[in-house]
Structures are given as C-alpha cells and as structure tokens.
Computed example of a mutant assay.
Amino acid sequence: MTKILRDEDLAGGVLMSIAIDALEAAFLARAGNRLISPPRHHVSFPDRGDLVFTVGGLMGETPIAGFRVYDTFKGAEHTQIVAVWSADDARLEGVILGERLGSLRTGAIGGLAVRHLSGPDARNVGIIGSGAQARTQLAAAAAVRNLGRVRVYSRDEINRAAFASEMQHALGLDVEPVDSVSKAVDDADIVICATTSQTPVIHSPDLKLGVHVTTVGPKTLQGYELGLDVADAAAVIATDSPEQARAYASQFFLAGSGADDRMVDLADIIAGKAAGRRSSEEMTLFCSVGLAGTEVVVASAILRSPALVRRGSFGAPQDDPSRPLRAPQDEV
C-alpha cells in the first residue's frame, strides 16, 4: 500500500538522525557517480510564478527514483510534493506533502558539513537568524556533535526569544537569545548564518580561530549574508553542489573573488577524495545550496524506516524538534 504522509506525520526526534545517515550514504554515492541529481528545472507561468522540479535517485542494491515539485506562486500557502519509486520494480513507495521534508533535508546536509568540517570537540554554537532553517541546522548540529552552549541573534527580539525557548525544550540544550551578532558568535566553534539579509552580517574578525561556518541564506553577487573576507580566511570552502552554485541565475557570491576556485564538493571530502580540516586552527566554510534530488533520498529513508512505523509516527504528531519548523525565516 502506498504511503501518503504530511507535515504532521514527520514527527519524532529520530528523524534528523535518519536523514543525516541517509544523506551520508547519498554523498558517498555521489562521489562514486551513483547519485542521480540533475539541476533543477523551472516551468514559468507568466505573472504568477514557477513550478520547480528536481529529480533524484540512488543506484545500488536497493535503487530508488523520484521527484520533488514546489511552487513560487504568490500567496501564503505553498505545498511541496515528493514522490519515491523503487527503481527495481516500479513500485510507488510513497508521497510526502508539505514543507517540513525540505527543511529537514537542508538541515541534515548542514549536519553532514558540521560532522566532516568542524573540530571534533566543537561545543559552542552561534546562530544568526531564528527561522525554519536556523532550527533544522541547529537540530542537525546537535545530532552530530556534543553541544554545550548555543547563542542566537536575529533582528526581532520576540522571534529570537521564541527560538531559544523552543529549541532549548526540543533539544535539551542551553540556548540563549542575545542582542547582537558579535555576542552570538563570540567564542563559537560552529557559526550558522541563516538569514534573509542581502548585506553581510558576519565578517572574519568576528570569528575565532578554528571556527566552522555554514551559510544558508542569500549567496549571489546581488546580495549575500556572509562577508567575502570569511571566504578569504577559510582554509577549506565546501558546498553540496558546485554545479548548482555556478548555475545560479544571478552569479554566486564568490564568483571572481579567487575563493571560488578553491570551493570543493562536500561529497569528495566525505569520501576522502579531497582534503577537509587539517588542524584545530583552520577555519572551514560550508556554502549550502541544497543538492537537487536529495529530498528523494530522505523521503525514501523515512518511508522505509521500521523505527518510525513501530513508533506510530505516521499520523501521530509528537513534541520534538520538528514541531517549530514552520516558523518563517527571520531577517537580521
């Protein structure tokens, strides 16, 4: 029987770990040319918006294939659709509707970057932004590192206080709202920048030696949230898809800076084909672009998970880090 899941079904603290493990395997497959992930395809509807399609698949002992489609139409309600097939027998495994899967996928990729690029003893986190992406990025970091202190800044005092309260309860961490970027990143081993800012909110002098930085927000020459001096200072610059970064409609923010030529595929670092962090004093930078097709990999792992089926997570919302993911991304 084909499963149909919605946002309310994607509950349970185990989800992030399932997503990270599934994507670790997918990135290793990418390094071995076994991940199918062509660029996004846009279909435009004049004066209304686009339908955006991504197709993905994984070759191996249990091959999968599928697609995601989402819209950019004007309006308050947006519903993504992810469908997964078994590539062995053409069986439709399931369909997932809603927004939560996309946020979970993006957060899990950020978690992989933290696992493979941050120092193994990284404990303190600074977060700029208090929206949906900030939530999943923190949940993913907590899944791969033994975190201690977390500080969050965003422009809206109410939003950052709500973020701190929700994530402290969800993750069992000490999460403190602060009133400036400098306070958030002070002595942070991991810095997550997840804003909608079109001008840099973080610069290299703000950061400690050995920090790992993830940028999730704007990254084009028309607007970017991270100072170019951060890329200049980084010993390692990685992304989940160099092809997507260089295929932006507006040029990638590192284009022409010299740092662009140093950007490597996170998959190659995970597979040992490219160098990652080499010392405790090196700064590392991860530019998240959302590797197309990987939603299919995460959806398949969720649909196939016996742990979730046994716990009755399908159709049974629970109190966990997934709950606040619908909060809007906040500007700084």
Rank of each mutant, 00 (worst) to 15 (best):
A245V: 12
G210R: 05
E331K: 06
L51H: 07
D88K: 11
Q222M: 01
L138V: 07
E281T: 12
A316Y: 13
V185F: 11
D206S: 05
S257L: 03
H78K: 10
L104I: 15
D7G: 12
V332C: 07
L325I: 15
E24L: 05
L104V: 14
S182H: 13
E157W: 04
V181K: 05
S250C: 02
D50G: 01
V181F: 13
T214D: 12
D9A: 06
L112F: 11
S118C: 09
P63H: 12
G60W: 14
T54H: 11
A90C: 08
F163I: 07
E295R: 02
R123V: 06
A184R: 08
I270K: 00
Q318V: 14
R68N: 05
A188G: 05
S279T: 14
G258L: 07
G49P: 07
A25H: 09
A188D: 06
H42Y: 15
T2E: 04
A19K: 01
F45K: 00
E24H: 13
H42D: 13
A184S: 14
G148A: 10
A140N: 03
D232G: 13
L23Q: 12
G32W: 09
T62P: 00
R149Y: 06
G272V: 02
R262A: 07
G111Q: 00
L266D: 05
G276S: 09
I18R: 01
E61W: 09
R123P: 04
A267L: 07
L117G: 04
D232K: 14
A76I: 13
D186P: 02
M167W: 12
F73V: 06
E295V: 03
